[in-house]
Amino acid sequence: MKKILFIAMLTSLIIACSDSKDIDDIKPEIDTNVSFAFPKQCTTLYFGEDFNFSALFTDNIELGSYSISLHNNFDHHSHSTEVTECELGEIKTPVNPFTFIQDFEIPDNLTEYEANQSITIPTGDENGLFDEGDYHFFISLTDKQGWSTQKGLSIKIMHRE
């Protein structure tokens, strides 16, 4: 009896599955080449100042969220995903490097979004001034279905003279 039930169940499943709907298999895109995009590969940012992160995000169905990470690349461990190479400073040991990791929401039901996020880089913390030099600017973008795209930029963060 159980066997018959099971076969019936499976048959109904096969029928149920035969009208398989289209799934989304397209990743979202990060465009940092649009005119308003900032920072770009090899940009220099400054401690103690605000900057406006801007990029164009697109997806075929619905965008999800994005995150930004800024971390030191004094040992040249990380690599940008860009074609152009930037001139890197000397390899050095971090003393008090600046780190920034934050995730940001994207309003619902958008297939195109111009990110425009003001980010403040403090001059230092209780341990003193932050180290200047090579940093890595890492952007990760998802869509609602869980597809993701990453982009890594080489930048410098310096203290104003």
Binding site: G64, S65, I68, S69, Q102, D103, S140, T142, G146, W147
Partner: peptide, 26 residues
């Protein structure tokens, strides 16, 4: 063969990012 799992355990990639531990990973 035909096979049915009522509750397959699946590692689902979400649209969220972590900001505590990694580099803002998905």
């Amino acid at each position: 063969f035909v096979n049915f799992f009522p509750n397959y355990i699946y590692l689902n990639p979400s649209d969220k990012h972590d900001s505590q531990y990694g580099l803002g990973n998905q």
